[in-house]
Design a protein around this nucleic acid. Structure first.
Lengths: 205, 205, 205, 205
DNA sequence: CAGTAAACGAGACGGTACGTCTAGTCTTCGG
DNA sequence: CCGAAGACTAGACGTACCGTCTCGTTTACTG
């Protein structure tokens, strides 16, 4: 069993000469293919072929197919017209229900779900990748909830002693579990009920 | 010239003639190897070699490496002296905190964590496998919580209108999310605080 | 600079289980392809594809494309109805002229020439391969000349002090040089003249 | 310098602006590398890197690595103090033995042998290159022998009806065969015996 | 002596083939 | 006559070079 640990090449390529055309083609091809064949059957060779690019051009700029996909997905999500914040109408319950219903819709859309699940799975399996994934997609997502809850706490709608980080986990953890591990279906009824029950625990006493 | 698409073999093997010796060797080798190299680098070939078994003997009885691992892990977990219930001392808070602290310890133990994460990841990626995984490991685990909460609800310690399934998800979802997606560390403090905050939402009003 | 010297696999395959069907297909495909594209453009991948065989099956049994070709060519040459001897009519000059004319014809036939040149070139470049090549093709070819000359020497047609090995080199060296290095064209006139001039040196004084 | 100025690229470079510094560096690097790794493992990229030169500078002036090597080798051989002629003392046998002994020594020297074999091999494989190789290295080498033999023939030491071209092939063919195809070792004894036997055939009757 | 055109070092690019690895199937042989 | 052993087809892996193609940077000739 050859245990050669991979003779990494440490020569860093010159980013200023990078072909934007190739970069886009690779990211686009990745998103297309992951939707068509799924993450496990996604191959670097297929991405290269679809993008009309040499394999080396992928290996030059990314360390794994997960890294490619993370970039591809981030590019989509960071799109200027992607809505990321939570409204603050003053009615916490309504605001949370609205944004979670929207998130349910998003996670029900196959075009979004396939690459996102692929990344979540890859992150669950690989600690290294996990960090990158959370930093770029996970934490920003949780942060917007924390901000909304903080606003409510300052308005006296949430008890002062409540750990807001934990509160966010109580909102998103059940959601993520249902989705990632398929322990249940994602519906508006589910998120509405979840918001209700969580808010009962957060209310000032 | 093999133009026939795939001459599937529909002969189902005769289970009564199955070699128990090989079965155990395969399951043991799987558990060992997943701990040593992780799920992604776990190969059928390596399992066969370690178990001193032909590859076909694995393919004959299992459909994928995940299926092997699921059997292997189930065998361990179903062990007679594996403690599965939640105590019922009458003090719901104490009981939940105790069992969740124990679960934290379990998930912190690498010998348990590696194969379990492997299965969770494989389940997250593959819908088919997911069903099997939940049926054999996930749902039984959630069921014991539901039972304990029902007992508390009947004793008037939880509001009568609370959906207990949702309550269980509020307890386990944040836990699973921290663990599977590595959004935080699993500590006794975390589970204690989680129990406190969830119970505030369940309390009768 | 990755200096890993090749993590050779030392597991020797079991020759008794070798697929004769695959072996033949590989040898046939090699001979076909070397004629079509030449040695330098001959690739293992193309051989495998043409033969309908996995690449590994080639790598399992041969160490290089030259080794494959050597086997392929040897198989042809060792064919039962391949004429290998030199006639001994008692007339040395006539016998040598006849066999060398036949050899000229052979080396003028592209179907023979392409693979043989490929092997000669590969042997000239690689000492290891050279040994195998000479042992299986070169030396047997020279040996038949030595035998014929010895018969003539014993008959008193060649001076007793002549080194027959050297005499054979004087016959074949010029031929090989013209062919391999293209220093001239191979014709019957050339070989006839060569036989004449060489025999003048061998004649008893 | 190259007679065929590479008609592949229609933009012909301006030879007058050519960097002599780069040209020398490339030729030197080629000679070094062919000695270190052999012809087959010699790559244009390695030559460029060793010479501190862009790959394009090589492709601009040469059509292949063989062409580079041919230039590199020719430069060495055409060196002013390289001795190319055959002495003419009047004693043909002594003169031939002397020059062939010197040639044996040359072909035994690895620094000479490696690049020369590389070129001979490349020429044997590629008809196009072969012409260039013969024109610049092969034929000039044979010509000096022809001249010496002609002088002897005019002096009556060689029969008038002998084809001198063929006589030269009888001297050099066995030598080349031994060397290129490794059918024997190159020694002074071998060339001495060869000269003796060849001259027996050339002697006036 | 400034302007400019071309050769230059550098290296990213689309490709091909390499030799290795693993999947999943098929075949052989010994217990 | 089952199953270990392992050879088989298939094809992705990640690497090495190919030959082409920009990029700025010299360099050397012209105007």
């Amino acid at each position: 069993m050859p245990s050669t640990p991979a003779p990494r090449n440490f020569r860093t390529p010159d980013a200023s000469r990078r072909s934007e055309r190739s970069r886009r083609a690779i990211l686009d091809a990745s998103m297309e293919l992951v939707g068509e064949v799924g993450y496990n059957k996604l191959t670097i060779e297929a991405i290269a072929a679809r993008a009309g690019v040499g394999k080396q051009t992928i290996y030059r700029w990314w360390s794994s197919k997960a890294a490619v996909l993370l970039d591809a997905f981030t590019t989509v999500v960071t799109d200027p017209d992607y809505e990321a914040g939570i409204p603050d109408t003053g009615d916490l319950e309504a605001d949370l229900k609205q944004v979670l219903r929207a998130t349910v819709d998003e996670f029900t859309d196959a075009a979004f779900e396939a690459p996102y699940r692929a990344l979540a799975v890859a992150g669950a399996a690989d600690e290294e990748l996990s960090k990158e994934f959370l930093e770029r997609l996970g934490e920003p997502g949780m942060e917007v909830y924390t901000r909304r809850l903080r606003s409510a706490q300052e308005a006296g709608q949430i008890a002062a002693d409540v750990d807001l980080g934990l509160a966010v986990e109580m909102l998103l953890g059940p959601f993520q579990q249902r989705w990632l591990q398929r322990t249940g279906t994602l519906t508006h009824e589910f998120t509405d009920a979840l918001v209700d029950l969580v808010l009962r625990g957060l209310a000032p006493r």
